[in-house]
Each structure stands twice: as structure tokens, then as C-alpha cells.
Amino acid sequence: MVQLSRFTLRAVACLAFVGLAAAHTSLRAEDISAWQSVKKAGVLRCGAAVAPPYVMRDPKTGEYSGFFSELCRNFGQNVLKVKVEFVDTTWDNIVAGLQSDKWDLSMALNQTPEREKAVSFSAPATDYNVSFVYNRNNPKIPKGARSIADIDKPGVTVAVMSGAAQDKAISVALKQARIMRLPGNDETRLALMSKRADLLADANITNMLLTEAHPDWAATVQPNPPLAQQEVAFGVRKETSAADLAVLNDFVNSQVRTGAVDKLIKTSVQAMLVANK
């Protein structure tokens, strides 16, 4: 029988311990995969910054609607089988709040290179570009305006939601016009309607709602080529596992493929138009 030295025995014991520790770490990683932490908490927290029709909030009831809100609600209830909670935030804080674990998903996040450094993204639910709404009676805006050069002039004020993707886009594109940064969608619309701002920069879908609600005075400048053409998706924390992301991507892709997203967009647009009458 071979006699093992005391040193060899100790080495074998150490290797065995390391192996067990590695196995335990692997098991723990598996335990928290596939949204297990959310399931354990029993609630999916959706970070919500208002941007109709993506994310809408009833000021009287506090209830959330909009097609991204419905997607988040459906993912939580139908896929993860948990309750869904919407957490109020702003576009300035939509990424920071996700990083600090104040919510599990950020809704309707434009996939920009800057944000990709801080968070990961799901498969896209829709696309996005920036348009500008103005009062057709405003002499500062030339009829038939179709380019940034037509509106980027001294004395022109553009309202935009602070920290939103459109804020980032126009901050680069506009060289002469004044940018009026405001906290939310309601404030930017009021600035345009009260004539404190000459134009409102927002998502193409969101601005479509405004022009359809006010066809008597509202007109759109849709830059050609499109300004800030991007994809809109859910944002998740950077450390989210590939397995977790695959679950979310399967859900989003199925909603796009079956036409569910298109139906939700149409429903949200109609609801917004009714609310604005």
C-alpha cells in the first residue's frame, strides 16, 4: 500500500475543497439565473419615465398604460408569473436607477452607444427617430421645412425632455437654436402650446400623437435623413446573465413576430387621442 506524505494529503484536501467551492459557486449562479431573484421577491419592478405612447401615466389615478408598460406587465405576469410594479422615474435617472437596483427593467430605452457602456439591452420592440412639432402659424419656421438647417437658427427655441434620447440627439445636431430642457412630456408640450418654445423635439411616434390631436395648428418637421434612427428596447443591468437575457428576448421577439406589439401601439395611440379630446 502506497503511503502518502503529510504534504500530499494536505494538497489533496485543498484541491477537494477548491472543487467543492467551485461547484457551490456554480450552483449558486444557476440558482439566481432565469429571473430567480425576481421570482423570489414575487414582483417585477419596471422603471417608468413617461413618454407617450411608449409609457403613459394617468395623473389622477397613477395607473400606467402605453405599449411598453403593457409589454412589461405581460412579461412579469405571463412569463415570470409575478406581480408587476411600476416605479416612477425621469429620463435623467432611467439608467442610474437601473444600475442601483431600484428596478429590474427600464422601459422604452433607446439603444445608444453611450447607454451600452452602462447597461445591456433586450431585443428591440420597435424603432425610433426624432421629429419636431411646431405651430404652422409660427413665422420663424419656414413652410415645407424638411431639414435641420431649416430650423437650426438663432432665435429659435426647441423644447425637449431633459436626459431623453432626443435630448442627446439634438444637442449634437443643433448648433444655433436654443435648447429648452424640461423634466417631462407634459412640460414640453405646454412650452410649445404656450409659445415659449418654437418647436418640440420628441420621438416620431409621440409627435404623431400631438399632430393628430391638434390638426388645426400642429405640423411636423421630419428630418431627412432621419435624425437619431435607433432601436427601442428594455434596459437590464450589465451583469444580467445570458440565460436571463434569452428569456426576455424570446418574449420580446415573440410579441413582435405575432404582431402583438403593433396592436399594442395602435391601442396606445387611440387611447392617447381619446384622452386629448
Rank of each mutant, 00 (worst) to 15 (best):
V2C: 05
Q3D: 00
L4I: 08
S5W: 04
F7P: 02
V12C: 10
C14S: 11
V18D: 08
A22S: 14
S26V: 11
L27T: 14
D31H: 08
D31I: 07
W35R: 07
S37R: 13
G42I: 03
V43I: 15
G47Q: 03
A48Y: 05
A49S: 15
A51N: 07
Y54W: 08
Y54L: 08
V55E: 01
R57L: 03
D58Q: 09
T61N: 11
S65K: 02
G66Y: 01
F68M: 09
F68D: 02
F68K: 05
L71E: 00
C72A: 15
F75E: 00
F75L: 11
G76N: 03
N78S: 15
L80N: 01
L80R: 00
E85F: 00
T90A: 12
W91I: 01
N93R: 13
L98H: 10
Q99W: 04
D101T: 09
K102W: 05
W103R: 00
D104H: 05
L105A: 00
M107K: 02
M107L: 15
L109M: 14
Q111S: 08
T112I: 07
E114C: 01
E116S: 13
A118C: 12
V119T: 10
S120L: 10
F121E: 06
S122D: 02
P124S: 12
T126D: 07
T126L: 11
T126E: 12
T126P: 07
D127M: 10
N129K: 13
V130W: 03
V133D: 09
Y134T: 06
R136H: 06
G144W: 06
R146I: 13
R146V: 02
D152S: 04
P154N: 12
V158L: 02
G163C: 07
G163L: 04
A164E: 04
Q166G: 02
Q166N: 10
D167Q: 09
D167W: 04
K168S: 09
V172F: 11
Q176C: 04
A177D: 09
R178N: 13
I179D: 02
E187V: 09
E187S: 15
T188P: 02
L190K: 05
A191K: 08
A191C: 13
L192M: 15
S194W: 14
K195L: 07
K195A: 15
R196T: 09
D202N: 06
D202S: 12
A203W: 01
A203P: 00
N204G: 01
N207Y: 00
L209Q: 03
L210R: 07
T211E: 14
E212W: 09
A213Y: 06
P215G: 00
W217T: 04
W217M: 11
A218G: 08
T220P: 04
Q222K: 15
P223L: 05
N224K: 15
P225D: 12
P225V: 07
L227P: 01
A228S: 12
E231I: 03
V232L: 08
F234E: 03
F234G: 01
G235A: 15
V236N: 00
S241L: 08
V247E: 11
L248R: 02
F251K: 02
N253L: 11
R257I: 04
R257S: 10
T258M: 06
A260V: 13
A260N: 09
V261C: 11
V274Q: 14
